[in-house]
Design a protein around this nucleic acid. Structure first.
Ligand SMILES: [Mn+2]
Ligand SMILES: [Mn+2]
Ligand SMILES: [Zn+2]
Ligand SMILES: [Zn+2]
Lengths: 152, 152
DNA sequence: CGCCTATTGCGACGGATTCTCAATAGATAA
DNA sequence: TTATCTATTGAGAATCCGTCGCAATAGGCG
């Protein structure tokens, strides 16, 4: 269990808010923190069931929201359709390059973005909570394989 | 008709690709370019019908995609659910601040973002097509009305 | 242990978009 | 102008991605 401290934080968060520590919550938590990739609700449900856990789709969705609210998990829109989830690495923010040909996702660290975000919000009287930033395009491999950049 | 040149471009685009110039396409085009705001497919359908045009929902969706592909219209995810569309102002890129309390959308011009995007893509061997950048938070008005920033 | 109530599972429901397919109507050439 | 070819349309069913309602279950506390 390489994510023991986060697990303890999660359990403490639950207790602090009068929420219950259920096996479903722990299994879901462990699954997200075991994965080092972007994973969607359906994939999480499938892997949990494959590992013998008994959990329903609604519970997966409900508890993903709960973990997002508690700040342990991030919910990102990578493609056009569903949300993906990833556990948060504290202190190391990143955003995503998404290949529209092969769906590959590359993370990039963006020190300048936080500063820019602060400045823009200051200028407009906004109080920022979080941002979504994705760059869509073609990855290196797809370019070499001859995919055409942009419209047809 | 204050968008005559774009209209001609659209028609030429269609002809160049062996696509037909239909009244439905022109009506939809005119509606998007008449609006100076972010509008979704359902709203477009409703206003077209209210103006006496005969057009179906499927046609609206199909032709929105077509206009996005031809580079005249941008498709942005402002809330969590549906897409919104806006006509492109060439040479003046912008992104969006979205208030999570009142759904207000404020546009901001971001000269630094293009440069950053280019640099990040160069470093990762990516060929960028476009990006999605939204900052979620609380607008000035909602802050004054006492909305609580972030969690709970 | 026993109560209280938060949480769960199941299946129905919902919004947004896409699909299917027969009918319609632009474009082109004679 | 008319015939022909086929892209496009309309209508509604289907799909995708979640969310909801509610009865059954089971954590947490005294
Ligand atoms: Mn990531
Ligand atoms: Mn805009
Ligand atoms: Zn690729
Ligand atoms: Zn607001």
């Amino acid at each position: 269990m390489p994510h023991q401290p986060e697990r303890k934080t999660f359990i403490q968060n639950l207790r602090d808010h009068g929420q219950r520590v259920t096996p479903e919550r722990l299994a879901l938590f462990d699954e997200i923190f075991a994965q080092h990739r972007h994973i969607d609700a359906e994939e999480l449900l499938t892997s949990l069931l494959a590992k013998g856990h008994r959990i329903s789709r609604a519970t997966v969705y409900r508890n993903l929201d709960l973990m997002v609210d508690s700040g342990l998990v991030r919910k990102v829109r990578l493609g056009q359709r569903r949300f993906h989830f990833e556990h948060i690495h504290p202190g190391q923010n990143h955003d995503h390059l998404v290949c529209s040909e092969c769906d590959r996702v590359v993370e990039f660290v963006s020190p300048a973005i936080s500063a820019m975000q602060r400045e823009i919000c200051r200028a407009h009287g906004f109080s920022p909570d979080h941002h979504q930033f994705q760059i869509l395009g073609l990855c290196h491999d797809c370019l070499e394989k001859g995919a055409v950049p942009s419209g047809t």
